[in-house]
Design a protein around this nucleic acid. Structure first.
Length: 239
DNA sequence: AACTCTCACAACCGCTGTACA
DNA sequence: CTGTACAGCGGTTGTGAGAGT
């Protein structure tokens, strides 16, 4: 493969190979896959190493059956995004694109639940997809103290006015987010919003995995911590 | 018990996108 | 602008386990 087929192993990985790969990535970090086989002392191609790490060895990978809400999310996202497995998996913490794809191909493709969604009358299921728009939060002492994020739009973004979205327990729904300075620092992100049957859910890409949760805005925080910005929330309401 | 079939999952392959010289 | 190397993605295939006959 890729010019160095000679002596390259294929097929199932052994425990020993897994250990070598795990150790290599612990020592050198993720990335530079072309160097990984050499550094790890593995007779595997870089693709095989990468795939093994991403789909099996990487910490925080969730094993076992998909939960009902995960399945529901897969169905909805597939309806919107098609076979873009990595995008779908990105919104399911701990699940890999391969897992999602396999699950879809083996269990969901003919699932009756798909038919149910498909058969719903148009007026009861309204889906708005807000295509990703890059946005940045500017960090300043002002906005931190006021809990009011200053949103800077990046080119090609129209910016609706900022008004406060719904609250829960008297707290602003982005409060958790602002308290996490690390997440805040890297909050330039792409997002996806879904409005279905009277509620809106948001996902934001390019966030720490732990923050990448679904947020049901109409009920305040919904489940999970937060990961979104007011701007897009307002945008969705205008649709 | 032996064989066949089906399912679930791991892994491979080829292609595309991106960065960089 | 072009060519090259590399990373990443999605389609496909291989394989083992369990169910059915």
């Amino acid at each position: 493969m890729e010019g160095y087929n000679l002596g390259v192993r294929k097929g199932a990985w052994t425990g020993e190979e897994d250990d070598l790969l795990r150790q290599c990535i612990e020592n050198h970090g993720e990335g530079n896959w072309h160097q990984v086989p050499y550094k790890a002392g593995l007779r595997r191609c870089r693709k095989s190493c990468r795939l093994r790490w991403l789909n099996y060895l990487k910490p925080n990978i969730k094993r076992g059956d998909f939960m009902e809400d995960e399945v529901d999310l897969i169905i909805r996202l597939h309806k919107l995004l098609g076979n873009r497995w990595s995008l779908i998996a990105g919104r399911l913490p701990g699940r890999t694109a391969n897992d999602v794809k396999n699950y879809w191909n083996t269990r969901l493709r003919m699932d009756s639940r798909l038919k149910k969604v498909k058969d719903k009358p148009q007026e009861t299921i309204k889906t708005i997809v807000i295509r990703p728009q890059p946005r940045s939060f500017i960090k300043s002492s002002n906005c931190l103290s006021s809990k009011e994020p200053h949103i800077q739009t990046v080119e090609n973004c129209s910016t609706p006015s900022q008004t406060s979205p719904s609250t829960k327990n008297g707290n602003d729904w982005w409060e958790t987010f602002l308290d996490d300075e690390d997440a805040f620092e890297r909050a330039t992100c792409y997002g996806l919003a879904l409005e279905e049957e009277g509620f809106t859910s948001f996902w934001v890409d390019d966030m720490p995995q732990s923050k990448r949760q679904c947020t049901n805005v109409s009920e305040g925080l919904g489940r999970g911590d937060f990961s979104f910005n007011v701007d897009l929330w307002n945008h969705s309401k205008q649709e």
